[in-house]
C-alpha cells in the first residue's frame, strides 16, 4: 500500500484533473457524462450513509430525490423563488418527511423494512401522479431563463457551471461521509449495522441514530433532486420518484462497494459511462442493454464478491504491493431478523 503522503499527492492530482476537466474538454456530451457520474455518485454516497454505514436498506430513496426536485421547482414556478433557496427548502422537506417515515418504519427490520420503503415509494409516487397542482402525470417544465442566471440556477449556454456544482455536491456528500466515519455517530451507525440488539444493550439509542442517518441521507439526496430538475429542466413522477430510480441508486453503491467511502463513486464511474456508451452504440430505443449488464453485474458481484469493486480493487492493490494485508473485510450487514 502506498504511503499516506503519496496517497495525498495522488488525491490532489485527481482533484486538480477534475477541476481542470471542463476547461480542457468542451464537448458537451463528455461533460454531461461527468456530470451524471457526479450526480449518481453523490446520490449513492447519500444512500450509503443510511444503508452502508447504518445497515438500513432503503429501496425508496427516490422519495427524497423527488421531494427535492418538486419542492424547488414548485417554489420557482409558483413564487419565482430562487432554486438555491428551493434546494435548501427541498432538503428541509425531505428531512422532515424522512423523520416522519422513519418513526414507524424503523421498527421493522431486514426484508420487512426494505419492502416497506418500496411500498412508501409507490404510495408517494401515486399521490404525486394524481396531484394536479404540482403537475400531475404531465410533469412540470422548469421555466427557462434567458440569459443564464446564477440566481435562477440556469446555465443553458454551457455545461461548465453544472459540472462544478455537481462536483461540489459530490464533494459535500463525500465530506459528510468522511466526517461521519470518524465521528461518534458514525461508530454508532456501524454498531447498529453489525448488531442492533448488541448496540442497544451498550446504551446506544438505536431509534434515534437510525433517524439521524436517515435525515442526513435524505437531505443530501434532495439536493441531488433539485440539481436534476435545474439541469434537465423537466420533472415528472416517473423520472424523479420511481422505484427504478431508487433501485438505480442502490445498484451504483452496491456495485462499487457498500459501506466504503469511495465505493459509490467507483460504482458510478463504471455504470454511468456504461449506460451512456450502450445508449450511443444502440441509439437508445428502449433496448435497456445497460440495465441488462447492470443486473448481471450485480448478481455476479453478490455471489462472487459482496464487497463490490472496492474490495476487488483493494485486493488487487494489496497483491501488487506484496504486503499480505489479507482478504479485505466484507461489509457484514443486517444479520438481524425481524
Amino acid at each position: 500500500m502506498a504511503g499516506p503522503m503519496a496517497k495525498r499527492v495522488a488525491g490532489g492530482l485527481v482533484l486538480l484533473a477534475l477541476l481542470a476537466f471542463p476547461l480542457l474538454v468542451t464537448l458537451p456530451h463528455r461533460r454531461h457524462v461527468m456530470i451524471m457520474i457526479f450526480l449518481y455518485a453523490m446520490l449513492a454516497t447519500a444512500w450509503n450513509i443510511l444503508a452502508g454505514y447504518c445497515g438500513q436498506i432503503s429501496l425508496g430513496h427516490a422519495i427524497f430525490f423527488g421531494l427535492g426536485a418538486y419542492t424547488s421547482t414548485t417554489l420557482l414556478k409558483h413564487a419565482a423563488i430562487s432554486p438555491w433557496i428551493g434546494m435548501l427548502a427541498g432538503a428541509a422537506v425531505a428531512v422532515v418527511v424522512s423523520q416522519a417515515i422513519g418513526f414507524p418504519v424503523f421498527r421493522l427490520r431486514g426484508h420487512y423494512f426494505a419492502i416497506a420503503t418500496i411500498a412508501l415509494g409507490e404510495i408517494i409516487q401515486t399521490l404525486f401522479i394524481n396531484w394536479d397542482w404540482i403537475g400531475g402525470a404531465r410533469g412540470v417544465f422548469v421555466p427557462i431563463r434567458r440569459p443564464d442566471s446564477f440566481v435562477y440556477f440556469q446555465f443553458n449556454e454551457s455545461k461548465q457551471n453544472y459540472y462544478y456544482i455537481a462536483l461540489a455536491m459530490l464533494a459535500l456528500a463525500l465530506g459528510v461521509t468522511r466526517l461521519l466515519e470518524r465521528s461518534r455517530a458514525g461508530f454508532y451507525f456501524r454498531a447498529i449495522r453489525e448488531d442492533q440488539d448488541a448496540a442497544a444493550s451498550l446504551g446506544i439509542n438505536v431509534a434515534r441514530f437510525k433517524q439521524i442517518a436517515m435525515g442526513i441521507s435524505a437531505g443530501l439526496t434532495a439536493l441531488g433532486g433539485t440539481f436534476y430538475a435545474q439541469y434537465i429542466l423537466f420533472i415528472d413522477a416517473e423520472s424523479v420518484l420511481s422505484l427504478s430510480l431508487s433501485i438505480l441508486i442502490c445498484l451504483v453503491a452496491v456495485l462499487g462497494g457498500v459501506g466504503t467511502l469511495w465505493g459509490p463513486l467507483l460504482g458510478a464511474a463504471v455504470l454511468v459511462p456504461l449506460s451512456e456508451g450502450t445508449r450511443i452504440l444502440l441509439g437508445g430505443g428502449g433496448k435497456a442493454l445497460d440495465l441488462l449488464i447492470y443486473g448481471g453485474l450485480i448478481v455476479l458481484i453478490s455471489v462472487v464478491q459482496p464487497g463490490g469493486l472496492m474490495a476487488l480493487l483493494r485486493r488487487a492493490m494489496g497483491r501488487a504491493h506484496q504486503l499480505g494485508l489479507g482478504a479485505p473485510s466484507r461489509p457484514r450487514l443486517g444479520h438481524d431478523r425481524p
Binding site: 426484508h111 450487514l333 443486517g334
Partner: peptide
C-alpha cells in the same frame, strides 16, 4: 449464509437482468 444486503441485491439484480433482458 451471506449478509442480508447480498441476499436482497442478488435477487434484485436478477430481477433487473430478466426484465431488461425481456425488454431487449
Amino acid at each position: 449464509d451471506g449478509p442480508m444486503l447480498t441476499q436482497i441485491f442478488a435477487t434484485f439484480g436478477l430481477a433487473v437482468f430478466l426484465r431488461s433482458g425481456a425488454q431487449f
